[in-house]
Simulated scan of single mutants.
Amino acid sequence: MRRLPLLACLALPLPAVAVEPVTEQPAQTAVQPGAQTPAVPHELEQRLAESEQQRAELAAQLANPDNRQDEARIARLTQENQRLKLQLREAQANQPPRLLSEQQTWYLAGAGTALVAFLLGMLSRGRRRARREWIN
């Protein structure tokens, strides 16, 4: 009984996949070279002229001396970048060495926190007469 709905679900997509017969209408769908309207070739010629013009503009931009100026600017910026890197290295070399490393600084901060917590615990304990109070 349970297999019947499963088979029905599998069979449903089959009619959707079926191929419809193609009916041709030769008078409307066939394209003949002499039957084109005069506007279509004119439009294609305009598009061709526009694309040729864009291609020529792009070729002119590639050959433009502005690119040479950009290359000179890039070379100048590269030299300036190298000079700034050298200055940074010199400034780092002239710095006095740090007293403590970062790891040592964190270690000291933790030790200081533990010491402060121990002292606060001792002060907050108050004065006790005997150790037996802890056991009770």
Rank of each mutant, 00 (worst) to 15 (best):
L123I: 06
L108K: 00
R132M: 08
G112A: 03
E133V: 09
A130M: 13
A56L: 12
A56H: 11
L99E: 07
Q79V: 07
L48Y: 14
R128L: 01
M1C: 15
A59D: 02
N94L: 04
Q46M: 12
Q95R: 11
D70Y: 02
A59L: 01
A18Q: 13
D66Y: 06
P33G: 07
R55P: 01
A93M: 05
I135V: 14
S101P: 03
D70G: 01
Q46V: 05
Q54Y: 14
L99R: 10
E71V: 04
L12E: 08
A60N: 02
R98E: 07
V31F: 05
Q69K: 05
Q104R: 03
Q46H: 14
Q69N: 01
Y107Q: 10
N67G: 05
Q28S: 11
Q82L: 15
E50R: 13
E45K: 15
Q53W: 12
R128G: 00
E20G: 03
N64V: 03
L6F: 14
A59W: 06
R47Q: 11
F118P: 06
L119G: 04
I74L: 11
E43N: 06
L120V: 02
F118E: 13
V116T: 14
A59N: 02
E52K: 01
P21Y: 04
E50Y: 09
R83M: 04
T113I: 10
A111L: 04
L48R: 15
E50N: 12
P38F: 10
A117C: 08
V17I: 15
T37M: 10
L100G: 04
A30I: 13
L77Y: 09
Q28R: 14
P96W: 01
T37K: 13
E52I: 02
A60V: 00
R89W: 11
Q79F: 06
L84S: 08
L99Q: 09
L108A: 00
L12C: 08
K85R: 12
P26C: 07
A59I: 02
T37V: 11
A49S: 14
N136S: 07
R128N: 00
D70N: 02
R128S: 03
L10S: 14
A49G: 11
C9R: 12
Q95M: 08
Q92H: 03
L7C: 14
D66F: 03
G34Y: 04
P13I: 04
R73C: 01
R3L: 15
L86Q: 12
L4I: 13
L115V: 09
Q61P: 00
Q103E: 15
D70K: 06
A8C: 12
A56I: 01
N94C: 01
R3H: 11
P33Y: 09
R83W: 10
L62I: 02
